[in-house]
Nucleic acid binder design. Sequence first.
DNA 1: TAAAGATATATAAATATGTGGATATGTTGG
DNA 2: CCAACATATCCACATATTTATATATCTTTA
Lengths: 98, 98
Amino acid sequence: MEFKDLNPESLERAAGMLKAIAHPLRISIVGCLEDGTKRTVTEIHNQLGIEQSTASHHLGILKDRGVLGSKREGKNTCYFLKHENLKTILNCVSSCCQ
Amino acid sequence: MEFKDLNPESLERAAGMLKAIAHPLRISIVGCLEDGTKRTVTEIHNQLGIEQSTASHHLGILKDRGVLGSKREGKNTCYFLKHENLKTILNCVSSCCQ
DNA sequence: TAAAGATATATAAATATGTGGATATGTTGG
DNA sequence: CCAACATATCCACATATTTATATATCTTTA
C-alpha cells in the first residue's frame, strides 16, 4: 500500500486517525492498551488521573477514528486497540523525537 | 525505547510531532519528501496547488516539530525529511485506515 | 544599491479542539 | 421497579488551528 496514491478521502481518514493519536492523553491511552489489553473507562480515568467525562471523551475520539474498538461487558465498556501494529507509530515517533 | 516510559515533556514532544504530521496537506508534504528528496517552498506550493504562504506555514510547522529540516540554497529554501523512518508512520496508518 | 524572485511573518476570521461540571442514559442486582 | 454504579452526552468556556491576503524579510544579480 503506497500512501502516495491515497485519494483525498483516504488522506482525510489517515489524517483523522493520526490526529486522534496525536494528543498526550490519547498517546498514553494507546500505551495502556498495547498487547491486546482491554480497559474500562473507569480504569483509564483513574490510571491517568483525569475526569471521567474527559476519559470518555478521548476514548470516544479514538474509537470514532478507528483507533480503538469497544465492547460492553456488564456495566462497563471495555476499550481495546483495533490494530495491534499501531504501536509501531508510537515506537517510531518516540525514537524520532529524542 | 519503550514509549510507555516517556516523561511528560517527551510525551508532549511526541504528540507535537504526530500532530504536525496529522493533517492532509502535511501528510502529502511528507509524502513528497520521502526517499531523501529535497523540495523548495515553491515546488511544494505548485505541486499541491496551495497558496505560497500556506505552504510556507505548513512547512514551518513540520520543521518546528522536528519532522523536517531545511537548508537555504540561494534564493530557495529546501526542505527534507529529518528522519527517513517517518515514512513508516504513513505506511502504518494508511494500512490501518482502510 | 535597486529590482526581482523566493520565503517568511502578521493579521484576522472561521472553525475546531480540549476541559470539566452537570446531567442523561444504560446496566445489573435486589 | 428502584437504587447503585458505569458510561455517555450536553453545555460553556478557553484555547488552538487553518487559511488567505497583505506585507516584510532575505538573497541574488544587474
